[in-house]
Design a protein around this nucleic acid. Structure first.
Length: 586
RNA sequence: CGGGGAGUAGCGCAGCUUGGCAGCGCGUCUGCUUUGGGAGCAGAAGGUCGCUGGUUCAAAUCCAGUCUCCCCGACCA
């Protein structure tokens, strides 16, 4: 149970609080949390992906930030603050000036020196510690900051869900040994679990791709949400879970059990799709193996999956250790490379310089069909080894509905989610390229082993809303809510109601509750609806109708109501009683 | 960057096809009435119709260019 301590003596009277709520939904909002953040007066858009936080939104942001800070401190991390403006030179040392490319907001000073607004801080922090952390005795060390990040997103969307300026908690750890990294990584995982639990999120941690951060292992923390943009798979019976982009699956044996038949070249005139070829030949479409040509940093590769499956490009990238893999998609290029148009390309007879990668699922195939690299022809009864040497079988296809867990064989569940945090085992990527070294017990110099740990603080606001709203508005969880209760005074000319409202406001403030007082001269319905829209968990309603019966009303955001006696009671007693109600809602 | 859509009062929109006083609802301001689930009446303020150029006696409306924003895809906390 947590109360909200008053941080200052600011007046929380709605008559003088900057809270512009909207009755109508802004046209450019799509996602429910985005609409609600605009309607409830939390944020306003400045330009694409850049937002103002109004008092209520800033308060929520601060609540979340504080929970994160507390748990990071509890986990032994030390808070610092790194610059947002960073010199290009550091980014060029690690090669990420190119890797991030147009994703970075770049600027120049008056002498034309290049800078960037930090999209993340690995470079700057490694630079900071490389001169100071020289001995194994200084390790391990965990530092964190809560700071704005800048990414010139290809497409900002859904308000602060994916914005170009966003608040992030980022932590970095430095170690002498992998065991030490493992230990810290686990401690960070636990801290994250506490954070997301305290925020009231329904979340799951999944295995994740490392992307531009690099590193060997990573997990993402996902808030489950139907409108979320990330898809994950979760095993229903064991604890396997993963981002779909790298998800494993139980490899099924789909061999036909027969020995290899004679390789045949067959006519498939004008057929461009797997379905057409399968129907023409009277075979299952899955066994018409698809071939794609990708251009990577190290040249061309061929990628093969079953006819019913799709390639997961992230998996190809991960296996190849390349920075990018782009499907060759121009008819002309494909013709030059393979000799055929898209419908008829295949792995047999390709240039030896083009390595072939095939999905694990097709490894068991015998007598399957592929394009013949000649327009209007396919090869059937193709078999590995005999017809195709040196094929690399890897986890390459997208996971499908109905796939089974790679660890226990139960069915995998698919969920939509919002990524709210990610933790990485980075290894020595940054310490290597930036020369961050320590001396071990024997006097040898070694690069630090590093980890990094991010939480999207601003993104957590829509994540929490997305899991907690109804037709009337937001329904804040207890640690996130900007106010723990709202005093609604009705009957603007009723002296008794007014006096009681004022006294209770002061009395509850004295008890360190964050109370919003709706003292506006407007209709009751307006006040009730605003309170529900902005998500205050408890409404304390004071008005002549109740006072005639000697009571005031407490209404919870859930709709439950309760009456509290005020007749013949001291104000302290009433406040005490109200405090119990407010705490009970938390 | 590819595909789709939109820029008219603070917000939501109509007007554009067929050129002719720039409108409606909500909000805002003033006054009176009203106060238990988005009050009523009366009055008022608020616009270079995204921008630039062109056609025309006349352009929100037609033409050309340009900028911005939103949605779907490739990237990410």
């Amino acid at each position: 149970m947590h109360y909200y301590k008053t941080k200052g003596d600011s007046s929380m009277r709605l008559s003088n609080y900057f809270l512009p709520t909207l009755k109508e939904t802004p046209a450019d909002a799509e996602m429910e949390s985005h609409k609600l953040m605009l309607k409830a007066g939390l944020i306003r858009k400045v330009t694409a992906g850049i937002y103002d936080y109004l008092p209520l939104g800033f308060k929520v942001l601060n609540s979340i930030e504080e929970v994160v800070r507390e748990e990071m401190n509890r986990a032994g991390a030390q808070e610092i603050k790194l610059p947002i403006i960073q010199p290009a030179t550091l980014w060029k040392e690690t090669g990420r000036w190119e890797d991030f490319g147009p994703e970075m907001f770049k600027l120049a000073d008056r002498k034309d020196r290049e800078f960037a607004l930090g999209p993340t801080h690995e470079e700057i922090i490694t630079d900071m510690v490389r001169n100071e952390l020289n001995s194994y005795k200084d390790l391990p060390l965990v530092l964190f900051q809560i700071n704005d990040k800048y990414r010139d997103e290809i497409r900002p969307r859904h308000g602060v869900m994916r914005s170009r300026e966003f608040l992030m908690k980022d932590a970095y750890s430095f170690h002498a040994t992998q065991e030490s990294l493992d230990e810290t990584y686990e401690r960070m995982y636990d801290a994250y679990a506490r954070i997301f639990d305290r925020l009231g999120l329904n979340w799951v941690a999944v295995e994740a791709p490392t992307g531009l951060m690099g590193g060997s292992y990573s997990q993402e923390f996902m808030a489950l949400a139907d409108e979320g943009g990330e898809e994950i798979v979760v095993c229903e019976s064991c604890d396997y879970s993963s981002n779909v982009e790298i998800a494993k699956y139980e490899v099924s044996s789909k061999g036909d059990g027969k020995g290899p038949s004679k390789l045949k070249k067959v006519e498939t005139p004008g057929m461009e799709t797997v379905e057409e070829v399968a129907e023409h030949l009277g075979i299952s479409s899955q066994k018409v193996v698809k071939t794609f040509i990708y251009r990577t940093d190290d040249g061309l590769v061929a990628a093969l999956v079953g006819g019913d499956d799709d390639i997961e490009e992230m998996k190809l990238i991960n296996h190849l250790g390349t920075k990018k893999a782009e499907m060759v998609s121009s008819q002309q290029e494909i013709k030059e490379i393979t000799g055929a148009n898209f419908g008829s390309i295949g792995p047999v007879g390709l240039d030896d310089d083009i390595p072939v990668y095939a999905d694990l699922d097709v490894k068991s195939f015998t007598n399957f069909t592929v394009g013949a690299n000649e327009d209007g022809y396919h090869l059937t009864n193709v078999n590995w080894e005999r017809d195709l040497e040196d094929v690399n079988f890897i986890n390459l296809r997208k996971v499908n509905r109905g796939d089974s867990c790679p660890e226990c064989g139960s069915e995998l569940e698919f969920h939509k989610s919002i990524e709210v945090g990610q933790i990485f085992q980075l290894g020595t990527k940054y310490s290597d390229s930036l020369g961050g070294k320590y001396q071990d017990e024997t006097g040898n110099l070694n690069p630090y082993i590093m980890g990094c740990y991010g939480i999207g603080i601003s993104r957590l606001i829509p994540a929490v809303i997305q899991q907690n709203y109804d037709s009337r508005g937001i329904n804040w969880t207890s640690e996130v809510t900007p106010f723990s209760a709202e005093l609604i005074v009705l009957g603007s000319e009723d002296e008794k109601s007014f006096q009681l409202g004022e006294k209770l406001y002061e009395e509850l403030k004295k008890r360190n509750y964050e109370i919003l007082l709706d003292d506006r001269e407007t209709s009751p319905g307006f006040k009730f609806n605003d309170a529900d829209l902005i998500g205050i968990p408890v409404k304390i309603i004071i008005g002549p109708r109740g006072l005639e019966n000697g009571v005031l009303e407490v209404e919870f955001r859930s709709g439950n109501k309760e009456e509290i006696e005020v007749e013949n009671r001291e104000i302290e007693q009433i406040a005490e009683k109200l405090g119990e109600g407010i705490s009970a809602s938390a």
